[in-house]
Write a protein that binds this DNA or RNA. Structure first.
Lengths: 329, 329
DNA sequence: CTGAAAGCGCTTACAG
DNA sequence: CTGAAAGCGCTTACAG
């Protein structure tokens, strides 16, 4: 492997000059610059990144720690972060915390040891220690320690779902919430409840029941079943809004078991817009999280280098087949 | 950040000695060693990895390039590779090739530039250039260039599926293959066809039709529809084996549309055992790829440091609800 | 077994 | 605008 010295010799300049054309910003005069560039090309020179890292104490690598890369939402995030990073010539180092706060600490520390230029963490849970790092750390999707959070505007997203359902004529609605120990679950619920309250009037009241569960399929199926065991069309909810697509898909399953037609007899909504949402039968109406923007903003913050305020990015409702007008009764 | 020098001073030894206890292998006498260890702990010393990398020209990082981390199979692989690497104190640098051979080249080169200690590549397609690297490169799942391949034994896996179906009494079987330009698709088809041929006898003949498609949902749905448009129970296949779970799930969809009961009227099998396979209704019988072993073997090869032969790891059939005895007729 | 010293390949004040 | 030189924090022959 040729070094900067070889290039300098071949171009007949000093290594300092070569280094300066490498970093572009310095003003090396045109003729010299060209000689250097030519020498680099001829030698097929590639800078030794480790040497550069030693000097500058930072490498063109962004650290990313997610609870589980196998979760489709996180892998989407990872993909977009990797693309954003690549655009700027950076790589990403990936770590899984396996939903374990301790492992999360270890992983972040390991990343920091490697002198990454910043780390993006999707926290295992709300909380998280402070790290003594002189590079930016940003929380994505789920708040981590004292670091600024980039996330979907869950409150607003849920409100959009509420608008959609009420607009369709639904007046008896059930909401399946996520675990209220999680900030995101609380925000989604609060956004939904608040909008329903605002829309409900004495002349045209809306009945809302809230059921807390986990974010997964089974939880949706179980809670859905308990909601739908009321077989009276007169009193049973005409719409179920779930705090996650997985829950909503669980509801779809149990509705099928119960021979309840969707959306004819019941409207169902999710939240996230995972890939499966568009594949399931019927296709799920949901709120799409703005993954590209989330990734873009998180990466931008790493490059901005300085802490900034939290950012809530609005999602978009995508209306598919699982919602429809209130059943005639 | 304290450096090795600070530790040396505090322990009253030379930096060489500190370095030697750091690398463990050298024989530093017990009393000295303890003083050094104590000094390191007291100072909360952490080695500067960039400096080490500069000297040794390699870092404790494995490069991984996948076509698309969003693909559940690849994300499973990534997760397991990351875990294996972590066990040995290594991190992984992740890159997506976006199914583009050129991007793949670029990504591998970038990883190599970063002096990773090896790279694992899940190729975009068969083919792939040779890289001039002095670290191990191994192909995983899909063959990349001249590098040794670690993959599921697709041939054997398909044969297991064939055994299962024939054992259930099926004698009219359709096979949906993947694109025959891909080695894995060919192996799966060949394994299936060969076993069926071996099992078919003049007294008890098996009819097999093969249909080539892509590996995705839509392809499965389309081909399934064309197979099942023959509505005669007498001549229509009683089982469809697909070369991927996605195809099989597509078949499930179209069977539902066509009001064909599974497994009462038709058995369906997939290949891969993606998470969705266990979620779909009815749950899919499929061949589970040995992801942990694949990841483990790939990582082990990086550490072994030397090229080795290809390795085919046997998968395991997982029987669920989508297969059953041949319909009585 | 331990120390002194060279050197990995860069970047960056400091001169000129 | 360019060069000479110091130094980033390690590792590793080389002596002793």
């Amino acid at each position: 492997m040729p070094t900067i010295k070889d290039v300098a010799r071949k171009a007949g300049v000093s290594v300092g000059t070569v280094s300066r054309v490498l970093s572009k910003n310095e003003s090396v005069k045109q003729p010299l610059k060209e000689r250097v560039l030519a020498a680099m090309k001829e030698l097929d020179y590639k800078p030794n990144l480790a040497a550069r890292a030693l000097r500058t104490n930072s490498i063109d690598v962004i650290g990313l720690v997610v609870p589980d890369i196998t979760n489709p939402f996180f892998s989407q995030l990872a993909k977009n972060i990797e693309m954003e990073a690549a655009k700027r010539g950076h790589s990403v180092m990936l770590a899984n915390s396996h939903d374990d706060a301790e492992a999360e600490q270890t992983q972040i520390a390991a990343l920091l040891d490697r002198a990454v230029c910043g780390v993006i963490v999707v926290a295992t849970s709300d909380g998280g220690q402070t790290h003594k790092a002189d590079v930016p750390i940003v929380s994505l999707d789920r708040r981590f320690g004292p670091y600024p959070l980039v996330a979907t505007d869950h409150f607003d997203g849920s409100a959009k779902i509420a608008d959609h359902l009420v607009g369709l004529g639904h007046r008896r609605i059930a909401y399946i919430a996520g675990p209220q120990s999680m900030e995101v679950a609380r925000q989604r619920r609060e956004g939904f409840v608040a909008r329903i309250k605002a829309l409900s009037t004495p002349e045209d009241p809306i009945t809302l029941t809230v059921h807390e569960g986990h974010f997964d399929y089974d939880s949706g199926e179980d809670i859905g079943r308990s909601i739908l065991k009321d077989t009276s069309q007169e009193t049973r909810p005409t719409a179920i809004a779930a705090a996650s697509d997985q829950q909503a898909i669980g509801v779809l399953r149990c509705a099928r078991d119960l021979k309840i037609a969707i959306p004819a007899d019941l409207s169902v909504t999710g939240f996230d817009d995972i890939a499966l949402a568009a594949l399931v039968v019927p296709r799920l109406t949901t709120l799409r999280q703005p993954i590209e923007q989330l990734a873009g903003s998180a990466v931008a913050r790493i490059f901005a280098g300085e802490a900034a305020a939290d950012e809530a990015i609005a999602g978009e409702i995508v209306v598919r087949e699982s919602t429809g007008n209130i059943p005639n009764s």
